[in-house]
Nucleic acid binder design. Sequence first.
DNA 1: TTTTCCATGTAACTCGTTACATGATTTC
DNA 2: GAAATCATGTAACGAGTTACATGGAAAA
Lengths: 173, 173
Amino acid sequence: MDRELLLLGLLRRSKMHGYELHEFINHNLGSCTELKKSTAYYLLEKMAAQGWISETREQKGNRPVRRVYTITEAGEAAFQYLLRLHLSSYKPGQFSGDTSLTFLDALPSQEAHTLLSLRRDSLVHDLESLRAVPRHQGSIQLVLDHHAHHLAAELAWLNQIIENLYASPITEE
Amino acid sequence: MDRELLLLGLLRRSKMHGYELHEFINHNLGSCTELKKSTAYYLLEKMAAQGWISETREQKGNRPVRRVYTITEAGEAAFQYLLRLHLSSYKPGQFSGDTSLTFLDALPSQEAHTLLSLRRDSLVHDLESLRAVPRHQGSIQLVLDHHAHHLAAELAWLNQIIENLYASPITEE
DNA sequence: TTTTCCATGTAACTCGTTACATGATTTC
DNA sequence: GAAATCATGTAACGAGTTACATGGAAAA
C-alpha cells in the first residue's frame, strides 16, 4: 500500500511509463526508498487491473511498446484515501540492526567497539552522500530531510554508545 | 537472517520451546521487534533442519509435546558470524510513512496540520508506553534505548514540521 | 462455567525480490 | 564495435503473515 501510494502520487503529476517511474524514483528518492523494476511493473499491472490507473500505448521506432499510465478517478480517490491514512499514524517499524545490538554483550568490548566503528563509517558515508543530493522542491525535499534527520540521530546515538564502550565495558568475557 | 539471529541469541542463553521464545520476545522486545508465532515455529523448524539448533521433547500432563530447542555448535558459529555481520554495517531501511510525506503538499495545509498532529499523538503514545517498560539488564536495554532515541528524534522532527506548517503553508490549493 | 493461557500446527496467500530473457538505440 | 541505456516481461523463489484448527489446563 505504500508503494502504490508512491506510484499513484507520481502519476498524479503526469502520466508515465514503468521504466520512467522506476528511474524517477531511483534518481530522486533512491537514498530513501527502493523500488525494483520488476516490482514497479508488477504493481502497475495490478493497479491497472484494479482500475486505479489506465494504460495507453506508445511506440518509438522499433523499441518495445511503452505502456503509459494515467491515474483514473478511482485512482485519485485511492490516493487521497491512502495519503490520509498513512499521514495520520505513526508505525515505528524496525530500526537498523537492532537485533544485533541485543547481543552486543556477547562480544568482548574491544571487538564491539571495532564493529560499531565500522557501522558508524558506513552510516557517515550514507549521510554524506545524502547531503550531496541536490535540493528538490516541495515535499520531496521533506522526505530527504527526514531521512537525513534520522541518520544524524543514529550517528549521535552510535557515537555515544561507542564512547560508553570505552568508559564502561559491558563484556561478560 | 535477522530473526534467526534473535532466536539463536536467545537460545544461546538457555534452551526454550517455540511458545516460550515467542512470549519472551513479545514481552521484552515487543515494543521494538515483532515476531509472529507462526514465524517463530517456521524459523525454528528451518534452523533445526539446518542443524543450527537441536530439538528435544518434553511433555507435561496431557498437553501438546513441547519442542525444546538447544543451540548447536554450528548454531553458535552462525550466531557469531551473523552478529558480527549485522553489527558492522548500517542499513538505513525505511522511515515511517515517508511515502506519504512525499505528497504532503497535495493537501491543504490545514488538513496536513491536522493529520500530522494525529501522527504525533500516536507517536507520543508509543514513546510513553516505551518509557513505561521496566528496565532490563545488559544490551537488551540498549535496544530499548535505541528505539526511544529514534522515537524522540522523530517527535522533534514532527514538531518542527508541524510548526512550519503554520508559519509557511506549502499548499498548492 | 466461561475465559484466558498453554502449545502446537499447517495451508494459503501477499509482497517483493532474484534471476533470467529479449532486442533496439544511443553513446563512446 | 563495445558498452550503456531504453523498455519490457516472466517464472520461480523467499520471507513472513493470515487465518484457521486443535485441545488440555489454569484462573476468573
